[in-house]
Every structure is written in structure tokens, then in C-alpha cells.
Design a protein around this nucleic acid. Sequence first.
DNA 1: GTGAAAGCGCTAACAA
DNA 2: TTGTTAGCGCTTTCAC
Lengths: 324, 324
Amino acid sequence: MARIKDVAREAGVAASTVSLVMNKKGYVSEATRAKVEAAMKKLNYVPSEVARNLSLNRTNTIGVIMPSLSHPFFGEVVEALEAALYEQNYKMMLCCTQHKENSERTFVEMLRRRTMDGIIMGAHSLDVALYDDLKQPIVAFDRYLNDNIPIVHCDHHQGGQLAAQILLSQGCRQVVEIVGYQGVSTPANEYHWVAADRLRRHGVQVEMLEMPWNAFSYRDFMASARELFQKYPEADGILGADLSVSACLNVAAEMGRRVPEDLKLLAYDGTAATRMGLQPITAIRQPIEELAQLAVKKIINLVNEEQDDSPWVLPPSLLAGKTC
Amino acid sequence: MARIKDVAREAGVAASTVSLVMNKKGYVSEATRAKVEAAMKKLNYVPSEVARNLSLNRTNTIGVIMPSLSHPFFGEVVEALEAALYEQNYKMMLCCTQHKENSERTFVEMLRRRTMDGIIMGAHSLDVALYDDLKQPIVAFDRYLNDNIPIVHCDHHQGGQLAAQILLSQGCRQVVEIVGYQGVSTPANEYHWVAADRLRRHGVQVEMLEMPWNAFSYRDFMASARELFQKYPEADGILGADLSVSACLNVAAEMGRRVPEDLKLLAYDGTAATRMGLQPITAIRQPIEELAQLAVKKIINLVNEEQDDSPWVLPPSLLAGKTC
DNA sequence: GTGAAAGCGCTAACAA
DNA sequence: TTGTTAGCGCTTTCAC
């Protein structure tokens, strides 16, 4: 495999000149440029990225930590992150923590080893202390890690307001909110509190149904949905994450409940999962692509130590459907 | 940031000794080991992976190319690949080609630049010539690239036999198979030909319904399902990829067709998408996790130039459901 | 415009 | 056991 030296020798110039040509830097005469390019072609030269990285102290790689990929929300997020990174000439290194003991720690360790220029952290950390004395750039994706790590996120307060407003305008009187396991707190939970508060102010009865710990399979969502209908048969409105609500839609059909006539279903997130059925689910949509682009922009600015006073928050929107 | 030299000076030894300690290689006396470890701790030393990579000419990184992540099949595959790589102390660099012009070329270029030790290629290549004179290790994931690139895949021949057998045993007389766009060929298509052949031998009428080019949204699947019921109202059996069949199940409900009484639905792949409804879809399941583990084992063996005569093919299995 | 030389931070052969 | 030395392959400063 040809190295820069070989190219230099072949072209009859110094290695540094080859470097200049490759990187289109400084001034190089047309004649030498041509010679160098010919030599590169002849030797089928491909520069070593690793050597370059060592020299520049930069890898152009960003690490992404997410719980899983099989959950549609994270799948869509990671896909969007990869696209945004590619756009900026960055590579993505991926770590999924959900089923892997210690993987988060290992991954952060790689960051310290300068394998990556920075990370975008979107998993619920099992060990927040990991991030405490970390010098490298981090951007959190809808997660609170500590006071020094900035968060890119959707405006969940507004999301909650919007949700309440919709359910109110649909005339709901008893709403059940399906919330994740409350042992871990995530910023996204806020929409639940905001919506509940606003609904209650308007005289709506609000109940919270908590999912068990580590329940992420559709089977679990179905179980919770059944529990919901059993515990709150009078409910006329349901608010929860996409898959929770999708399960409710299925169970409602099973029980002969008419949606949206007698029961309003409102999903939060608005991934493709809300589109996968005869009856698209009305949803508060997190702007996944835009959030991903923002996170990428932020992490790259952090890596480059560039000033960036633009906001870290993006508004949700309403995704039309037939369940509200 | 402390370097190996600093640690060496602090511990009063040579850099090479520090290296030996870090990598647990060769013989180092307990006393010096302790001194070195103390120095590392004191200086908060973290070795540079990049320098190590340059020295070893190895990155312990494998690139993965897939069309997308939002499609459940690929999401599950990539998640499993990442887990298997992690298990072997490898990192995963990801590239999604679906919506990105030229990204495949760029990614392969990174392989040539030795950013990664090898790649697992699971996207349908837009430019097979890219792989022709590539020296680096590649394993294809259910894709044919060229005669030199080995393929990890599910036994689709057996999958087709199994599918036919099930539909026959259910007494189907007119089966429609929903096939992907035929302008690009993928190994997975084989199950369609095999199943069709076997069904026809048994006197079953078989029709092929082709999806349009680049149709991957659920909306597209619904459209094809509607087309199917309109074109072949007499069909009593349907075979196709998970999402195609899921759409058929929805449309069947809409049209009042009884499944499985009057219409048998059989999905191929068996991702979580077949579980997301009241009526789980009977499926021929590709062993995604095992395939991922196999692909990882194969690529690592290739990287290490280790002999490996184990098979590249894994059998499908039957995933029980309520549509057949 | 171009080349010589030092440096990025680590590993490994060989000598001591 | 441990240290010396020479790489790994590129970038960059600074003479010329």
C-alpha cells in the first residue's frame, strides 16, 4: 500500500508538497500539482485517515449513544443523526445501551481515548457520574445529565399545552395518561405534567397509568392498554407515547369502543408507528429530523469551539390523524 | 492531556514499559507495575486510541452499510450487529444509504482510507463496481455484490419451501405474492420463486404483485394491498414481507375479509412489526440476531486472516401467529 | 513554490 | 525485566 513518501518519490517532490496538493492548501504550481496527481493515480494512493487523525488530533467522528434502534423513535432519530452528520462530513459511531451492561461506560471511555471528537447522548444514563469530569464535548439529546451538559430537545411544555388543548376541544372529561416508569426521569415527561395540570384546571379528571420498568415490547404496551381499560372504563381520552396509544387503539377495537366517537386517542412523538394502521393516530409530533440536525450542529460547534447562541429547543407540531 | 511520556517520567521508567503495563504484555515486575499504575492514576492518563491505531495499523472498527434504520428489519439488524460487535470489542461505524446520494461511495472510500478494518454491507449497492478492486475485508449481508464477496444470509430456499408448505397445508388455492421492485435483485427474492414453484406444482394459482420502485413507506404498502384486493378478489393466501402483509391485514379488515378463515396471511422476515396488532401475523422468521452474530464473526475472521470453514447460511424458522 | 525536519502518541524489536 | 531506538503515515513550520 503506497504511502505519501512513495508518491513523493514517484513525483520527484517532497512529502510535504504531496500533502499540500491533497489538502488543496498553500500554493503549489500547476506543474507540480499535475506531477503529484499523476503519481497518486499511478500508485493508486489512498491516504491513511488514521495518520491524518493523529497529526490533526481530530477524527471527524461523533459518537451517538441511544437505548435501542428497534424502537421507532430512536430508529428515526439515529437515522436522522447519521444523515445530518454525513452532511457535515462527519462519521457516526453508534452505541446502543439497552441490552448491554456497561456499554455506556465503555463508550464514554472511548470518547476519553479520543476515538471520537464528541458525543451525542440520547440514552437514559445509568451512571450520570460518568459525565462529571469529562472534558470532551457532549450534547445531550432530550436527556438531563448534569448542569454542564446542554440539551437539544423538543419543547415539551408546549407539547403538553397542545395536547391538553386538543383533548379539551374534543370535549374529553376523563383522560388517562400513560407515563413511562417514573424511577428514571426524562425531560419528555414534562408534557404529561403540563397537560394534566391544564386539563384539571378545566375540570377534566386525569389519571396517570405508569408503565412497569423496562417494558418496551409491544406485548407490554398491550398489557398496559388492557389494564387501562379495565381500571378506567369511563375514560374518554388517552394520551401517551406512540406505541402505548397504538396498543390502546387495538384494544379499543377489540372491546368495541368507537374511536374517535366515544374515545379520543392522542399520541406523543408522531413516529411512523402512528401511521401503521387503517386509522392513523393523531399525534403531537416531535420534529425528529430538525432535532437531529440541531444536535449535530451543536456538537460540531462545540468541537470547533465556535460561538453559537441559537436556541436549543424546537417546537412540536400537530400531526393529523383519525383518532381525535 | 497526559501522554505516555509523561507517565513514564512520573513513574521513572521508559515509555515502552508503560506500554507493556497498559497492554498487559511481556514481563513487568510488580514494583514497576505499581509505580506505573500510580503514575497513570495521578496524571489521569488516558491513552490515545488514534496513536495506537496508527502504530498497530488497526482500528478495531467495522463499518456497517444499510439502506435505512426506520424500516424495522434493518433497525433490528443494525441493533444486533452493534451488540455482536461490542461483544467482540469492536466499534461500529454506520452508514445509511437510502436517502443519501453517493454516501455508499464515500463510505467505501473511508474503508480504503483504513478508517475501518472491514465492512458489513447490507444495502443494495447502487454501484457494484465500487467493490471490484477493493483489498479490504468485506462481508455482504444478504446481498450479492460480486463473486469474491461472501454473503451471510438466511436460507431463502428453505424459507420458500416452508412458506409453500404452510400455505398448502392451509388449503390455499390462489396465492398472491407481493414482491419488491424487480429492477434490483436481492437474494431474499428467492423465497418467492421457490414458494411459487412449489405451490404451482400442487395446482395452486400464484400471482405476483410487484411493489413500485422506492416504495418503503407504510402508505405505499397500503396502496399495494388495496391494489391486490382489487386485482385478485379471489385470493385466499398472501405471502410477502412483514410490512406488506401487515398492510394487507389492515385492508382485509377494512373490507370485511375474515383472517385466517377465508384468507391466510403469511409474512416473511418476522420482525416486531408482525407483533404489533391484535392479531399477530404468522411469519417465516429470519434469525436476525444469529445472522448478525455470524456476520460479525465472519468479518472479524477475515480481518484477522483466520481460517473459518463454518457455513454462511442459517435456516429460517416459523413464528407462530394468528393469520394462518 | 518547495523541501527538510520535527512532531502527533503509541508499539515493538532488540539490546542491555 | 527494562530502556533505546526506530518506526506507523501524515501535517506543519520555517528556511530557502
